[in-house]
Write a protein that binds this DNA or RNA. Structure first.
Length: 271
DNA sequence: CGCATTGTTTCCTA
DNA sequence: TTAGGAAACAATGC
């Protein structure tokens, strides 16, 4: 599942792919909904930069921005334009030099958007959890007066950008906080642990180039098709039934806010 | 067949 | 007014 570390991995690889500086000549959608804007708006122009905001990939062109969300199964590959269409290829960006950026997306939830205004596009997105501004003090402000459970709050992209189910479970395990704790009830000490848990789980995910679960082709894969190595490092996500690596208690799974949560009932207690 | 998966949107309630 | 919870949605694989 592409979350901040997986998207970051892809963005870094795209940046080093030599696409920057090349001229885009056209976008084509094989699955019409994937390109969620009038593609005639995208005139031939140079790709200036590639960056990430939350789980969004941002391709900055001379006259606007292409915002891409991978959702569950979106992947990229760079191939010669003359190569045949791949299985599950939903859209393609063709460049003047004869290379193309292919978008492969089994589930078809991924989307491309176009806007001239990056600030407007991101007006409702939360803070970057690895930025300097994201301090324990700021996290405390975000949690204050919130009567929501901490897990759904961590997944709320308008509060903190980029955390999904994997890293939310990892961060809460790291901080020894039960996913159903009410956000405003966290003690100073716990907020500091949670801040640390969020940052360290995201950083290790980035260092290991993302999480590839199993072998399925709907899985997360890097630009060159190789696997992210973070799955072997997971302490909570999908660990229900195995023993907690801290205290050996059997981990459990419970639905919290319509999403499955994996945690240690001993380390992460509600009261 | 039903469930799981992501994040947005919409609707409802306190 | 607003926050928050739940459901619907987009599709497919297991």
């Amino acid at each position: 599942m592409p979350e901040l570390p997986e998207v970051d991995t892809i963005v870094e690889e795209l940046k080093h792919s030599s696409l920057i500086g090349k001229t885009l000549v056209g976008v084509k959608a094989y699955w019409p909904k994937t390109v969620a804007f009038d593609s005639t708006k995208l005139k031939p122009q140079k790709l200036m930069n590639i960056s990430r905001r939350g789980k969004w990939i941002v391709l900055q062109f001379e006259h606007g921005f292409l915002f891409i969300h991978l959702r569950m199964t979106g992947k990229f590959k760079i191939l010669p334009t003359s190569d045949p269409i791949l299985d599950h290829e939903r859209a393609v960006l063709n460049f003047k030099n004869g290379t193309s950026l292919r978008f492969i997306d089994t589930r078809k939830f991924g989307r491309f958007y176009w806007s001239e205004d990056q600030t407007l596009f991101f007006e409702n997105i939360g803070i970057e959890p690895l930025s300097e501004e994201f301090t324990p003090t700021l996290l405390k402000k975000l949690l204050m007066k919130r009567n929501r459970k901490i897990k759904p709050l961590l997944l709320d992209q308008s509060v903190i950008a980029g955390i999904g189910n994997i890293y939310a479970d990892e961060a809460l395990w790291e901080a020894k906080i039960h996913p159903e704790r009410v956000a405003s009830s966290l003690l100073e000490k716990e907020i500091i642990s949670l801040h640390k848990g969020i940052q360290s789980s995201l950083r290790i995910g980035i260092a290991l180039k993302g999480t590839t679960l199993g072998k399925g082709k709907s899985n997360f894969y890097r630009l060159d098709g190789s696997e992210g190595k973070h799955a072997t490092n997971l302490k909570a996500y999908q660990k229900s039934g195995s023993r907690c690596s801290r205290c050996s208690t059997v981990m459990v799974k419970k639905t919290v806010g319509q999403r499955s949560s994996h945690f240690c009932p001993h380390c992460q207690r509600l009261f």
